[in-house]
């Protein structure tokens, strides 16, 4: 039986090959057939989850909430020293220096990644901005958000910090972050669904030892991860509680 694995669509496109390499490595490590299916948007991915087509997922914190609470997924691991933070950026020539200078009617370029969107909307609250007094331009990829800012088609752009940092130097020179989130305690999680849950312990021991194995270390490098660390149920539950407090 083949199990489907997917990755939250907010990952950097330059790591696509890394996820395929990881999938090959994982299949050998736990002796299971696993098919990697990548979706173009959070909406497409959520439909696949709702249809029970996913048994293993590297999920963003927002989706992890529904997966654990409603679908019975359990936490396996997360990347060490990687927290999910968001950035709001402007064109480098913009007169906007901080959030509180933003006004009603601000044009926001954003993907449909719910965690980044939620973190960034929270960062707009000190300016009194919300869904009802801003204009959102939805894009499928972070590079398109950068383009909107460069062409002045949007006033601000929402980015996952990791993805922003991996934009090309030429692009970043033409942009300027006005605020970074400093949450420190939320992460993407590798979660396993009920049909593959019997492999959780095998996965955890394989993932933990990955850093000590030359092949595994190469796979980690292709994902830009230092190492995996195990995530217990309570750590995941705490993060989910935190996401609940933030969701309106």
């Amino acid at each position: 039986m083949t199990h489907n694995f997917t990755v939250s669509p907010d990952f950097n496109p330059s790591h696509i090959s890394g996820w395929y390499i990881f999938n090959t490595w994982l299949q050998r490590a736990i002796n299971e057939e696993i098919h990697l299916e990548l979706y173009n948007s959070a909406t497409e991915q959520r439909k696949a989850i709702a249809d029970d087509q996913v048994q293993l997922i590297y999920a963003n914190p927002y989706d992890a909430t529904a997966l654990v609470r409603d679908k019975g997924f359990i936490p396996v691991a997360r990347a060490d020293n990687k927290t999910d933070e968001a950035i709001i950026a402007v064109n480098h020539e913009s007169l906007i220096l901080n959030v509180e200078q933003l006004t009603d009617g601000t044009r926001i370029s954003s993907t449909d990644d719910p965690d980044v969107r939620m973190m960034c909307m929270i960062m707009l609250e000190p300016a009194g901005l919300n869904k009802s007094n801003t204009i959102t331009i939805q894009r499928d990829a972070y590079i398109l958000i950068a383009k909107d800012l460069l062409k002045n088609d949007a006033d601000i752009g929402f980015f996952l910090e990791d993805t922003y940092n991996e934009l090309s130097d030429i692009t970043k020179k033409q942009l300027r972050p006005i605020v970074h989130s400093q949450i420190h305690v939320i992460h993407h999680l590798l979660l396993v669904g009920p049909k593959l849950a019997h492999k959780k312990n095998d996965m955890q021991s394989s993932l933990l030892s990955m850093v000590d194995d030359p092949k595994g270390a190469g796979v980690l490098k292709s994902l830009n991860f230092e190492r995996w660390i195990v995530v217990g149920q309570e750590e995941a539950e705490f993060m989910i509680d935190l996401m609940d407090t933030l969701a309106e």
Partner: peptide, 11 residues
């Protein structure tokens, strides 16, 4: 769990 965040001067 408690989360506290910055708010606007108006609020």
């Amino acid at each position: 769990t408690s989360v506290r965040r910055r708010t606007s001067r108006t609020k």
